[in-house]
């Protein structure tokens, strides 16, 4: 059987004005993969995602989501997205955890339609899946950064997307919660078979959980199995980052 690709990028280039941000990106993400993308600041991570989410149109190349060219792609509820929200959202916003998670279903349900009983159940399940049931009726602003990030994951998974994209989801999450956060992602990937793409600069944690690793710095340098990436060792990584880099060892 032919491998099914959830996301495919072919020769994608993007530039703002004169500056090239992405150059000739090729990426193929098979169904069920957990892809980690690492890259220094300014490597084009956010631009890459904006292209994949259809917010930016690359000048060159083609992007396919579930085999459909992105220009023709309409089933956006199949794609979930978690941004670096812990940094930027309005913490004074009067919304409960439940309301925030339910808003993840708005587009799927469609205009002029109300949430059904099934929807409400899906919301409770998503909150449960990220371990936030006890906080469902709390205001989102009262939670810690790590808890908020879990809520945003719940919002992204409530519509049961097949592909979940996470942009530095652990920024602003305190160090103790990062590990349990990755364990949760691992479960989504294994248990629900959700395809995950995660951007991070935390190389130490990433190689432990993911199935594929890619390095981004304008170009996409490596795209292979996680075990092979570990073999590359420090030297290659330093070259890639342009400065020596400490790869954190895992504490088992």
């Amino acid at each position: 059987m032919e491998t099914e690709y959830v996301l495919k990028m072919e020769h994608v280039s993007f530039r703002y004005e004169k500056e090239n941000v992405l150059e000739d990106i090729n990426l193929a993400v098979p169904k069920g993969a957990f892809v980690g993308i690492v890259g220094p600041n300014g490597s084009g991570k956010s631009t890459l995602f904006k292209c994949v989410l259809g917010l930016l149109k690359p000048q060159q190349g083609k992007i396919y989501l579930f085999g459909t060219p992105i220009e023709a792609f309409k089933d956006w509820h199949r794609v979930g997205y978690v941004s670096q929200k812990a940094n930027s959202f309005n913490t004074g916003f009067p919304a409960t955890v439940y309301e925030v998670v339910a808003s993840g279903l708005a587009a799927k349900r469609g205009m002029f339609r109300f949430f059904t009983k099934k929807d409400r159940q899906a919301v409770s399940e998503a909150i449960e899946a990220v371990g936030m049931s006890a906080f469902a009726q709390r205001n989102i602003g009262e939670l810690s950064g790590g808890q908020q990030q879990r809520v945003f994951i719940a919002r992204a998974i409530v519509s049961k997307p097949e592909l979940l994209i996470l942009d530095e989801p652990t920024v602003g999450v305190d160090i103790h919660h990062v590990q349990s956060f990755y364990t949760m992602l691992d479960e989504l990937n294994r248990r629900l078979g959700m395809t995950l793409i995660l951007v991070t600069h935390d190389i130490g944690t990433i190689t432990e959980k993911v199935t594929h690793v890619a390095c981004l710095n304008k170009h996409l340098y490596f795209h292979g199995k996680a075990e092979e990436f570990e073999k590359l060792g420090e030297q290659t990584l330093s070259q890639f980052y342009g400065h020596p880099l400490q790869v954190l060892s895992h504490q088992h």
Partner: peptide, 23 residues
Amino acid sequence: VLLYKELFLLSFDEEYAVISGIR
């Protein structure tokens, strides 16, 4: 009432609303 969930999502997180396909 009819557009409540769209208005809520747009108010809370405009970027996410656009990504998820809200008009």
